[in-house]
Design a protein around this nucleic acid. Sequence first.
RNA 1: GGGGGCGUAGUGUAGUGGUUUAACAUGUCGGCCUGUCAAGCCGAAGAUCGCGGGUUCAAAUCCCGUCGCUCCCGCCA
Length: 588
Amino acid sequence: MFKSHGCGELRLAHVGTDVKLAGWVHLRRDFGGVIFIVLRDRAGVVQVVVSADVSADARAAAAEVRSEYVIQVEGTVRRRPDDQVNPEWLTGEIEVEARSVQILNTSKTPPFYIYDDGAVDEALRLRYRYLDLRRARMQRNIILRHRAVQFIRQFMNAEGFLEIETPYLFKSTPEGARDYLVPSRVHPGKFYALPQSPQQLKQLLMVAGFERYYQIARCFRDEDLRGDRQPEFTQLDFEMSFVHRDDVLDVVERMFTAMVPEVTPHKRVVSPFPRLSYAEALDRYGSDKPDLRFGLELTDLTEVLSASEFRVFQEAAANRGQIKGIVAPGCAVYTRRELDELTEIAKREGARGLVTLALAPEGPKGPAVKFLTEGEISVIAEKLGATEGDLICIVAAERRVVAAALSALRLTFRDRLGLVDPDLIAFGWVLDFPMFEWNAEAERWDAAHHPFTWPRPHTYEEMIADPAAVLSDAYDLVCNGWEIASGSIRIHDPQVQSDIFRILGYDPADAKAKFGHMMEAFSYGAPPHGGMAPGIDRLLAILADEANIREVIAFPKTSQATDLMADAPAEVPDQLLRDLHIRIDNES
RNA sequence: GGGGGCGUAGUGUAGUGGUUUAACAUGUCGGCCUGUCAAGCCGAAGAUCGCGGGUUCAAAUCCCGUCGCUCCCGCCA
């Protein structure tokens, strides 16, 4: 072994110990006769003192050393004099007096600082990802991820789940995200698809009688990226037989409630997780993934303002729309410019405008004041619980737009007013999703979650009577405003499954080709089952205080889905394409 | 597919009201230095201002195009 200890693990207790260390040169301070080297390895950093008095050879070697050289040091752990303790460091009470310094490898000057987590151009970080990963922030995040995943494995194992792998080369399924395809060499013109999730396979594992399955599964979706979306991402995919909805929720709730204090002790989990119906989430927060760390809930004013003379309100009420508002505490002083920005946010979500009422000391102010009676204004303020100094924001439009606009404003105030404790982890369940969604463009019903979800009323007659009213046993877990997991109790009855396909308008022959294996499997004694799939990347981003899941993935893609380090995707030799029976059409 | 932001020594930034030898910090290289801890002091090198084209007497600066990174909308059952 090159080393007897990790650099960062040395403490006062090691004083007097002879140690062999190996790592990277973090910083170097050369005084001529004495050279300080801050040596770094995975465990952390420690100060090495190389004195000419101790070893002329060691001093000579240390003088050659530069940032990020890989060196080996042999020496003795020594207590630092009281006035030279570095309280910033875990190893700050000691130092290693070097007897020998060996250069194991040199390094070019790195393209950015390793010892500092300061901002560096994203493209440069990704091009030199292996250097970026050396930096404290990424080391911390990747190690945190390891600990979280290990916790999950131990927890799931203890709960009686079996870890089972499923294929990456599988079959494209209709709907959902665009698939990543893999051409078949053996079967010209045919393609595998990388799984968007192991959904079908885990259900088949339930049919197979494993009862409890889990997998830290890579999933692939060929859609445009966002801060919370990468083309490949990782889920804790699990499925359970002979359970009801609450049994599934219970596993996840216990797991995360135990995990957070274990891997991030400075974070506080709100427990038990609040439960909201989908309808309630939209009603109170305007979103199906509400940030539950703060209030600022939406209040419905449709009824109290239905008789208003104000045309904006009249129209909304007349068109079966809604009038809702939120209160921004202390924001009555907002300038014209700030109010315009709020209006822009509302408009971006489809609202035609935003009604603002500033409760200034001299009375209510705002462009709509002249259209409202004093009585109406006081009813609004009372309903919303607004007091002097507050800013009221009202959107009147169709339900969807009202929800989207006020939700966006709510998050804007969250950020501007600093309404959340960054160390709060606020999980919440969103339940009772609708089974179907009307797809106006295609003029048909789509599955709101996926077509394998168990509908509450499950006879064809009950469902077709009013598809919009059919709720399902689908559920989401949200955390700090992110959708963190999604799942459902599945259909295990082939009759119900074919009824769902019928309502979704699948051509029976087509459904058989796409899902025949599922239908057939269900006809061989499929147990009632359900499951869920928490997104590991998103959860880790929240725990690591990162806004982008890139920061918790060792080798992520850019927002254009490229790998700047390896330069992928890339062209391939013609022969490879010929083997795959593929010709490139440069026209399209 | 659409919209916004960014691109200037290795890195992070300033300069963007047209006329500079393109500034500052840090890093790099050399020198001094035996107790520093983002060491200090002295000295040096380092930038065709992302790329291409245009306007002009004159472009880092204005215009057009293009590339890259990023955020958002669409998309993501």
